[in-house]
Amino acid sequence: MKGFNQLNKAFESRVRLGIMSVLLVNDWVNYKEMKDTLGLTDGNLASHVASLEKLNYIEVKKEFVGKKPQTSYSATKLGKAEFQKHIDGLERLLKGG
């Protein structure tokens, strides 16, 4: 089954699937938006972001806005390509191969 071979273990988690889905349609998403959109705890978001960052699928930007620290996320070119392959594989599986 060709579709099955395209699936990426990095996106098996519903949280990582959610993170990548949000980042595919937004250039940058800040921490609070991501956490609220997906309904995650701080620790849950942090661990999944770390995994995706380690694979170079997302970029993490830390900066100060005024005097407050802000963390934002963006999908890398590699991350977008790998996620699209995963989605294509899922579609093939759903269509029967």
Rank of each mutant, 00 (worst) to 15 (best):
M1S: 15
M1V: 10
K2H: 12
K2A: 13
K2N: 13
G3N: 04
G3C: 11
F4V: 13
N5H: 08
F11M: 05
F11N: 05
E12G: 04
R14L: 11
R16C: 05
R16I: 04
L17M: 10
L17C: 02
G18Y: 10
S21W: 02
V22S: 01
L24D: 09
V25E: 13
N26E: 07
D27I: 02
V29W: 06
N30Y: 13
E33I: 08
E33D: 12
M34H: 08
K35V: 07
T37W: 11
L38Q: 06
G39H: 05
L40Q: 05
D42Q: 13
L45W: 06
H48N: 15
H48I: 06
H48D: 02
H48V: 07
V49G: 03
V49W: 03
V49K: 06
A50P: 07
S51F: 03
L52Y: 02
K54W: 02
N56A: 12
Y57I: 12
Y57T: 04
Y57C: 09
E59Q: 15
K61N: 09
K61L: 13
V65I: 14
V65H: 11
G66K: 03
K67D: 13
K67G: 15
K68A: 15
P69M: 13
Q70A: 08
T71V: 15
T71G: 09
T71S: 12
S72D: 10
K77D: 12
L78A: 12
K80H: 02
K80F: 05
A81T: 12
A81N: 11
F83W: 03
F83L: 01
F83R: 01
F83K: 02
Q84D: 10
K85R: 12
I87S: 03
I87N: 03
D88W: 00
G89M: 07
R92H: 07
L93T: 04
L93M: 14
K95A: 09
G96R: 06
G97L: 11
